[in-house]
Design a protein around this nucleic acid. Structure first.
Length: 477
RNA sequence: CGCGGGGUAGAGGAGAGGUACCUCGGGAGGCUCAUAACCUCCAGACGCCGGUUCAAUUCCGGCCCCCGCAACCA
């Protein structure tokens, strides 16, 4: 029995869970569930990233103590995962004491390797906001809120991580393991980024400015910059450093991340691993963003799609279905409420739900007892599993839904509903065979749906096992 | 010359050196087991300009347009 470790990127808790989080959770869950049936022991990690300036600031805005604030958000994200039926084995919080200890131990390793050093750090500061600004927060070197003020440059002593040292090693690894990052477009982008040269990055902040972080070992003046702390969750979640055995059992990890996280996960984090003396991650899948109506979702545009509202309206499995089948595994994908509704109606109500209804109606009427299922119905198509392992989730889903269509075609061509009423005995027998075949076909579809749409799969299998037409699986809305 | 991606029927997507596929929508027919569902057939497309090739929408070059990213946005 082999072991596989899968993790999502921890969402930062400065905002509520959104459709992008749902996408990543569901993709990871799909993969985890399929691996579990392939004689593989799976450890599936999710969690929340809770330190840093933005969180401290948000907590202040809401008039809360940071601890209370992050507790609230961690609860919200966990509930979110539960409502999406995510089969996670671990929900790590970067404020967990074990994680904090791990971050410090990891830091110490990098420090001992000579990769963490102190240097002067320049920040851009807006005196109007009384806040540090990053380049992306500035437009033409100016703060948007205070365009008439000059941005000041301030300096302070911070710790740096020797990222530049690992350029060659990273490039060598990318060349050696070409599917380290998937899809390959992302690998190209990453390679060109690293080839262009790496600059050491700052990994701490002065404590007096930012108390909401992990204290740097042996320096009470400094706390870790949230990046450094957060990335370590991938090893702290599996027990490092206090349980070396457990760590060795699960590492290396398969990571899922958004395209905005490519560098951090596939370059920075990998360099940190190297510095601390760990093997690289196993592989990293980078997904795109979900847009709506061709634009980024934003409150001001009013095009935000709230995943939990979708769950309420269409059901969890329908939401999981849309995210797995109608979202590109490579590029950004557009989803609108209309499109979601259309997918639901066309493929779930008219397609899958209707097929189950028509087949089970015939079965219930013409068979006195349920059909015994055999090993054939329980087996899973290898191609289906391969697609998922290659992160081609939508193609895997296509395979299942082709079978739904085949069922409908078979029904039309063989007309068992007509032959079963025939006076002719042999026609009746033929019809019975056809119905049985269709019932087995349904069972097979259900088995394949276990991973993407667990409760739907259960409903179908229950219907087959009890020889009873279920209530509408996907009512028209 | 900053980096990467993209422009395919009315809409949204997939694809590949040689009959361009899917979903929704439109048109015609069929079926009646089913959630007014299902099946069949038809109409309709490869941004622009060059090049390579027997053959390009697919490869190469140029142009136009769109979208991300541009490192501490966590």
């Amino acid at each position: 029995m082999s072991a596989r470790y899968i993790t999502t990127t921890l969402p930062y808790v400065n905002a509520d869970p959104h459709l992008g989080h749902a996408l990543e959770f569901v993709e990871a869950d799909f993969l985890a569930r399929t691996l579990r049936v392939q004689n593989t022991e799976v450890f599936f990690n999710i969690g929340t990233d809770e330190h840093g300036a933005k969180v401290a600031q948000k907590a202040k805005e809401e008039g809360k103590d940071p601890h209370a604030y992050v507790d609230e958000y961690a609860k919200r994200f966990k509930a979110f995962a539960d409502q999406l039926d995510i089969s996670y084995d671990s929900f790590i919080r970067t404020t967990d004491p074990v994680h904090i200890a791990a971050a410090q131990a990891f830091w110490a390793r990098c420090f001992d390797a000579g990769d963490i050093y102190k240097a002067s750090y320049k920040v851009k500061y807006c005196t109007g906001c009384e806040l540090e600004k990053t380049d992306s927060e500035l437009t033409q070197g100016r703060c948007l809120l205070h365009p008439n003020l000059n941005i000041e440059s301030r300096e302070e002593e911070n710790y740096y991580f020797r990222f530049s040292k690992y350029q060659e090693a990273l490039l060598a690894h990318y060349a050696k393991q070409q599917d380290f990052v998937m899809p390959e477009e992302r690998m190209r982008e990453l390679t060109s980024f690293v080839t262009a040269g790496l600059k050491d990055f700052s990994v701490s902040r002065r404590r007096e400015k930012l108390a909401w972080g992990v204290p740097v070992p042996n320096d009470p003046e400094q706390v870790m910059y949230v990046w450094f702390d957060a990335l370590v969750n991938y090893v702290s979640a599996i027990g490092w450093p206090q349980n070396e055995q457990r760590f060795l059992k699960w590492w290396p990890v398969t990571q899922l991340a958004g395209k905005d996280n490519l560098r951090q996960q596939a370059a920075m984090w990998q360099a940190m691993l190297l510095s601390a003396g760990f093997p690289f991650s196993r592989n990293i899948f980078i997904h795109g963003f979900i847009t709506s109506g061709g634009q980024k979702m934003s409150k001001s545009l009013g095009n935000v799609i709230h995943p939990l509202e979708l769950v309420e309206k269409y059901g969890v499995d329908a939401v999981r279905y849309v995210l797995l089948r109608h979202v590109s595994h490579v590029e950004d994908s557009d989803l609108t409420l209309t499109a979601i509704h259309e997918h639901y109606t066309a493929h779930l109500a008219n397609g899958l739900g209707n097929l189950v209804a028509r087949v089970m109606t015939l079965a219930e009427q013409h068979f006195p007892a349920p059909i015994e299922l055999g090993p054939e119905e329980a087996s899973i198509e290898p191609l289906f599993l391969e697609k998922i392992e290659e992160f081609r989730f939508n193609e895997a889903m296509d395979i299942i839904f082709e079978h739904v269509n085949k069922g409908d075609v078979y029904m039309t061509e063989r007309t068992p509903y007509k032959k079963i009423k025939s006076e002719n005995k042999s026609e009746q027998e033929e019809a019975k065979k056809d119905i049985e075949k269709l019932v087995r076909h349904l069972a097979k579809i259900a088995v394949h749906l276990t991973f993407a749409m667990p409760s739907t799969a259960d409903s179908i299998l229950n219907a087959v096992r009890s020889n009873k037409k279920p209530t509408n699986l996907f009512p028209r809305i």
